[in-house]
């Protein structure tokens, strides 16, 4: 029953995305633009001793992945946001489905989409000469880190979508928060190069742990710190899932016309 609900809703998400080909094309292309133009250009200006590698593009790959997941996290909440505003959420809630299916199907779908996109990013990086130090087996590990980060950010975006009164507020907040979230992390700069206060903020940012795990896998290879970073990421995802579940319960229990 539960699987049937999750599959049916995932089918809805997938069909809606596939019907918007241009949207799909541009979201797949965007990370490539970051790698080629941003990392490619900045690489020449970056001191290899600071970033710990002469290959800045390899250094930036995890940052670009994280950036992509942040962007997709915002779009992840859009169906919920619009279903809430158009009233279709009411129709869904009048059906005998588990409330959690609405959320879980979104996670399943987002993890699938983001995994596909990470593979495209890794292929573009490969074309630019990046060979992950952890080899082919590093790819599933990178996908696992992406999946955890996807859970965390999708949950956060869904919680926000439930909490706001309209999509205007949602986009104002996410538009404001996306860049600081990215720059207050080790996405493009190592923590050691940051001022102390910024490093402290970055250490509280779940992005940092996902990026750290992925960067070790891409630049250094298998390393004991990979499970540590993934563990920290799991804790952050669990916390954000709890917030998301709480907001969603609040939203669905007491809806006002």
């Amino acid at each position: 029953m539960w699987a049937q609900e999750v599959l049916a809703l995932s089918r809805r998400w997938l069909l809606m995305v596939l019907r918007e080909r241009l949207n799909l094309l541009f979201s797949v292309l965007q990370p490539a633009v970051w790698l080629v133009f941003f990392a490619g250009a900045l690489g020449g200006a970056v001191d290899p001793r600071v970033v710990g590698t002469g290959d800045y593009i390899a250094f930036a790959v995890p940052g670009v992945i994280a950036f992509t997941v942040v962007g997709n996290g915002v779009t992840a909440a859009m169906p919920l946001l619009f279903d809430k505003e158009t009233g279709y959420l009411d129709k869904l809630l009048s059906m005998p489905i588990r409330r959690s299916s609405l959320i879980v199907s979104r996670f399943v779908f987002q993890v699938g989409m983001n995994s596909a996109q990470v593979i495209v990013i890794l292929l573009v990086a490969l074309a630019l000469g990046v060979r992950p130090a952890s080899g082919l087996l590093g790819v599933p590990a990178i996908l696992a880190a992406t999946a955890l980060l996807t859970l965390a950010l999708t949950a956060a975006a869904m919680a926000l979508a439930c909490a706001v009164r309209s999509h205007g507020t949602f986009f104002a907040i996410t538009g404001f928060a996306s860049l600081p979230l990215l720059f207050m992390s080790n996405a493009f700069v190592p923590l050691t190069a940051m001022p102390g206060w910024m490093e402290a903020v970055a250490r509280a940012n779940p992005l940092t742990y996902a990026i750290e795990a992925m960067r070790l896998l891409v630049v250094d290879g298998w390393n004991g710190r990979v499970p540590l970073s993934l563990g920290a990421l799991m804790v952050a995802s669990a916390a954000l899932l709890a917030v998301g579940a709480w907001q969603f319960t609040r939203q669905t229990r007491e809806r006002i016309a």
Partner: peptide, 15 residues
């Protein structure tokens, strides 16, 4: 079976 007042184009218009 609940048939809502508003049709919901955003909910399904691409289906």
């Amino acid at each position: 079976g609940y048939v809502m007042q508003q049709v919901s184009p955003m909910g399904s218009y691409l289906l």
